[in-house]
Nucleic acid binder design. Structure first.
Lengths: 217, 217
DNA sequence: TCTTAATTCAATCAACTGTTTGATTGAAAC
DNA sequence: GTTTCAATCAAACAGTTGATTGAATTAAGA
């Protein structure tokens, strides 16, 4: 009876793992079922078809992934907010500990969007980006155009994304063991935050014609 | 007789286009041959099998892609070098004009490396990264550790990569027409260069204990 | 014109794909 | 004890996959 949750969950776990490693097309239902110790028909029974199994995996992956919305006490320095947010993003992305396939699957989905992408962005990415945009806006002069603020926020997230998306390239570029050191969250976070604060201050400089307000530190 | 080059080239063109759009697994040889107006057996005849056709496409794609090594006259300001290099990288990546599938195929290969990835990085990515690393090193104090310099270079390329790799996400995040404006090379380049110079200067500040040398502008 | 080699072609191969079927299980519900 | 129903199973489905064959076609050289 409660084997329902058991088989179904095991199917999601194994499928997610294989999907994340080989992609949707290259993954066969037989492979998944064998890994899960289930019958071929189990997928049709529990999910309908392969595609709906995949969607279920993606949804499960970013449902498991804790997405915290920070509630800052009034008066919190934007620099501090940025530090916390960047560190949090990096922790999420770099974390190689527990369910690696979940993040990997989301990464794959974002790199080559399928049906599940829009929901993923709206539920998972957008909130973080909104927070980041708000923080960046605090650090920039009030008269900064929206597009510039968005671009600046992109410049920040881009640095975080690199260590997840382009890991294989990074390893090939500077050597595997050298790149391994870059997966230390604190090291990377410090670098990114320093770089970003400097970058934001420079961008701010272009839009504060008269009074020097809004610049970082 | 000269149909050899014709069919073979048409096969590479069509295959590259489809490979770049759907990936290796999801692409069928029948689809490719139909698009190229060739017989199914043509792939076996000209390339041996599907995989070697794919490799040929990747090689052709980044062979076509002009990779210039800049030869700076002595005394050129590193800020200026950075500006030129970043603009050049962006032009390459954002360029939606001529053979879109070639860049797209490289992007796909770098996101999910297959057999062709290592050669691609070594021949195509590494040289650019080396140039960038050299420029960044000029802008940083001499005592800056190698790892920090590499990280800083990563921070710069990360911003460029964003507009190519994460285009669908960007469009979903800030709206398609809004994001379209970001594909203007000059706009983006100015933003990235300003941001990067500020970031580098901030990073430099951490490693120049006594004398103030090496900082940007 | 005949020979030779390079290409192209339709037809077919075995293997694998996702999906479906119908029988079987086993534990609750009546 | 019978019925009910979710769950699993082996077996087979029809369709597609990449690969291969051998004959047909083409074009150039002698």
């Amino acid at each position: 009876m409660f084997e329902l949750e058991d088989t179904r969950q095991k199917l999601i776990d194994c499928a997610g793992q294989i999907f994340s490693a080989k992609g949707f097309e290259a993954t066969t239902v037989r492979e998944v079922c064998q890994a899960a110790g289930a019958n071929i028909a189990a997928i049709h029974y529990h999910f309908g078809d392969k595609e709906r199994l995949y969607i279920e995996c993606v949804k499960y992956a970013h449902c498991q992934q804790g997405m915290t919305l920070f509630d800052w006490p009034p008066g919190t320095l934007p620099q501090h907010k940025l530090t916390v947010l960047v560190t949090h993003m990096l922790t999420m992305m770099v974390a190689t500990d527990r369910p690696a396939w979940q993040i990997e699957l989301m990464v794959r989905e974002l790199a080559r969007p399928t049906v599940a992408c829009r929901a993923l962005v709206e539920e998972f990415i957008s909130p973080v980006f909104a927070q980041l945009l708000a923080i960046v806006s605090e650090l920039l002069p009030a008269e900064t155009p929206l597009l510039t603020r968005q671009q600046t926020a992109f410049s920040v997230v881009a640095q975080c994304l690199l260590y997840r998306y382009h890991r294989p390239i990074g390893q090939l570029l500077i050597g595997e063991e050298q790149f391994q050191q870059l997966l230390n969250v604190d090291t990377v976070a410090n670098q990114i935050i320093a770089f970003s604060l400097g970058g934001i201050r420079e961008c701010a400089r272009q839009y504060q014609s008269s009074a020097g307000e809004g610049a970082a530190s």
